[in-house]
Design a binder for these strands. Structure first.
Length: 419
DNA sequence: TGTCCACTGGAAGGGAGGGCTT
DNA sequence: AAGCCCTCCCTTCCAGTGGACA
């Protein structure tokens, strides 16, 4: 061995890694053995759900709370515990079927019913197809499956408001009524939402049945967030790998945003990843500040890059109008630019009605600000401006080959280096 | 006070695409 | 193969609207 090769390896082996093995522990989706500052919520939910282990139907529950207040984590934790209680005490407790559905992903009547039905069907050939059956047939299949065993089935509908806004409350009506048709099986529903108002859109019968029990998860304060971060950091990071101020900074930043534990964990994880990438030996506050920017950028990039082509063109239109000096554009102006872009690109353009919807979607995604404003005789329209830096959006749009050509070849008078 | 503008946003429905059933 | 269902994306139609202006 030469002196050179020894020092070459030393350079790498001497670095004390920041992460222990499993970095997923710092992800919000990881469910730890115990959830700090949620004991009260866990106890009261457990007292309601424990009924299921005795074979009776627990009340339906609605859980409210802002993002990152632990609603999902607590329900998943309880699901794990309730299954464990049955397995370790077989004979004493009845089995409970625990089905978790994220309604942001599964957001149609059919989808929810098929998902629940398929929980019970092991044989791939007999599964309910993701399309093709009538909703009634799926419902009947599901009812048979639930009634085939003398067990309680718990369905957790996370982000239930998304389901209601998108597909109405028919599926909730059927699911909350199903017990009347069951002979031995029983069904309870737990709805999770960060939107207190969604129940206003429910049929009164559904509202009262669904909200037999209600619970609100309060936001975490900065101290509580620190406890959460400390617990995870101990599991995921090596001792001495973080500066003392890092955890309190992550917690303080997340506490500013309504006490969002998800945000706090993301900040800590990304800070550690950035430090690791920099071959630093410790995570310092410097990396936390970098993480704030990175998280913002990543969020924009993820949203913009996955937009469909026409939405990207609408966004590009807004961007072009803004680049050309207007502080904001109206729907009509955006539509004109958009049509021009479609023409240049040899594409068919959508109707203004459709573009109105695309603009609303971009607004909801937080990429643009669209404020309804009346100009008196000038009419009533949206005042539209970018919510994110023009440069950032242009960079992401450039990654799309089709759009890139449009940006680069656009024969506009003021074509500048801005894009 | 009524008019009028430039839309907004709800409703209905078409059609393509996925898949099942007979 | 024909008939059906469901979802998604879109168009067409149209009543409704906030507020400047005559």
């Amino acid at each position: 061995m030469t002196e050179e090769s020894t020092s070459l390896f030393e350079k790498y082996t001497d670095i004390r890694p920041i992460f222990k093995k499993d970095r997923d522990i710092l992800r919000p989706s990881y469910i730890p053995e115990n959830l700090p500052h949620r004991r009260k919520q866990i106890e009261s939910l457990a007292s309601i759900l424990a009924t299921a282990l005795q074979g009776s139907r627990p009340s339906n529950i609605l859980i409210f709370g802002k993002t990152g207040t632990g609603k999902t984590a607590v329900m998943k934790y309880l699901g794990k515990e309730i299954k464990a209680a049955h397995t370790t005490n077989e004979g004493r407790f009845s089995a409970v079927n625990f089905i978790y559905i994220n309604c942001e992903i599964v957001d149609t009547q059919y989808g929810v019913l098929a998902h629940v039905g398929n929980y019970f069907i092991q044989d791939w050939d007999e599964r309910i197809p993701f399309t093709g059956w009538s909703t009634e047939k799926v419902y009947n299949q599901l009812r048979e499956q639930i009634d085939a065993r003398e067990e309680v089935t718990l369905i957790v509908l996370d982000e239930i408001d998304k389901l209601v806004y998108k597909s109405g409350d028919d599926v909730l009506f059927h699911l909350t009524e199903i017990n009347a048709d069951l002979h031995q099986g029983k069904l309870s529903i737990v709805g999770i939402s960060n939107d207190l108002k969604f129940t206003e859109f429910l049929d009164t019968r559904v509202r009262s049945r669904l909200g037999e029990e209600r619970m609100v998860f309060p936001p975490y304060n900065a101290n509580q967030l620190q406890d959460i971060l400390r617990q995870r950091a101990e599991l995921a990071l090596n001792d001495d790998a973080i500066d003392p101020g890092v955890i309190s900074l992550c917690a303080a930043l997340a506490a500013q945003e309504h006490g969002d534990a998800r945000r706090a964990l993301d900040l800590l994880r990304v800070s550690a990843e950035l430090a690791e990438r920099d071959h630093a030996t410790r995570v310092t506050e410097h990396f936390v500040h970098k993480a704030v920017n990175k998280l913002e950028l990543d969020a924009v990039e993820e949203v913009v890059s996955t937009l469909p082509t026409h939405s990207k063109l609408v966004l590009l239109s807004i961007l072009i109008n803004e680049r050309e000096g207007s502080l904001y554009s109206t729907t009509g102006e955006v539509y004109d630019t958009y049509r021009e872009l479609c023409r240049q690109h040899g594409m068919n353009h959508l109707t203004q009605r459709r573009v109105t919807d695309l603009i609303s979607e971009l607004d909801m995604l937080g990429i643009i600000n669209a404020r309804l404003k009346s100009f008196g005789r000038g009419g009533r329209t949206r005042e539209i401006s970018l919510a994110v830096s023009l440069y950032e959006i242009a960079d992401v749009l450039r990654q799309d080959e089709q759009i890139k050509d449009l940006i680069d070849s656009r024969p506009h008078q003021n074509q500048t280096k801005l894009l």
